[in-house]
Every structure is written in structure tokens, then in C-alpha cells.
């Protein structure tokens, strides 16, 4: 069972190192302008790719996922507090699954 321990430690290292290196070597100063602009767009590009199409398989059933997604978009569009967006998304998916 020692091997399992080593696997988990290996997993931890290869997860931590990519998280750490940019924080140690990159700083605001001396960064080429284009790289800075690129990195400014990264969070939004990441969000897009994280949301779609992954959301479709998030509840185990496409129709309830779509119902939850639509509720979340609507609530977010109304600029409601993010907790309400989350609860509304869960609620819509749950109710949809109950009805069908």
C-alpha cells in the first residue's frame, strides 16, 4: 500500500508545481504588453470553456441541466447575488427533474 501513498504524493506535486511557478516568476513589472493583455482575457476564456459543454452533463440529464442553466443565466442577467444564482440553478434543475 506504500505505492498508493507515493501516487498521491506524485499527484500532489504535479498539481502544485504548475500552480506555483507563475506566481514566483511573473510580476507586474517587465511583462510584455501583449502577454499582459492575453492574461487579462484568460479568466473569461477559462469560464467559457468550463461552462460549456460541461454544464449539459452536470445533472446526469440534459433537460434538467438546461432548465438549471437557463434559470442561472436569467438570475445572473438580473444581477442578483451569486448565491441566489446558484440556489436558483439548483432549484430549477431539481424541480424540472421532479416534474418529468
Amino acid at each position: 500500500m506504500n505505492e498508493l501513498l507515493l501516487i498521491v504524493i506524485g499527484m500532489a506535486l504535479v498539481t502544485y508545481i504548475p500552480r506555483l511557478i507563475p506566481l514566483l516568476i511573473l510580476g507586474d513589472k517587465n511583462m510584455p504588453r501583449f502577454l499582459g493583455t492575453f492574461l487579462q482575457f484568460v479568466p473569461f476564456a477559462v469560464l467559457g470553456a468550463l461552462i460549456f459543454p460541461g454544464i449539459l452533463s452536470s445533472t446526469g440529464e440534459i433537460s434538467s441541466a438546461v432548465a438549471g442553466a437557463m434559470a442561472a443565466v436569467l438570475l445572473a442577467w438580473m444581477r442578483l447575488n451569486i448565491m441566489l444564482v446558484v440556489l436558483g440553478g439548483i432549484g430549477a434543475a431539481f424541480i424540472w427533474a421532479l416534474i418529468l
Binding site: 452536470s58 442553466a69 442561472a72 451569486i82 436558483g88 439548483i90 427533474a97
Partner: peptide
């Protein structure tokens, strides 16, 4: 059933952040 529906929670959070 509730656990399945909660699978959408983080996606809803992403939507709430992004929209």
C-alpha cells in the same frame, strides 16, 4: 435526486460570475 441537481451548482456559480 437532490445530489444530482446539485451537480449544477458550480456551473451556476460560473454563470453568475460571467454574465
Amino acid at each position: 435526486s437532490l445530489q444530482a441537481s446539485m451537480g449544477i451548482a458550480l456551473y451556476a456559480m460560473f454563470i453568475g460570475l460571467l454574465v
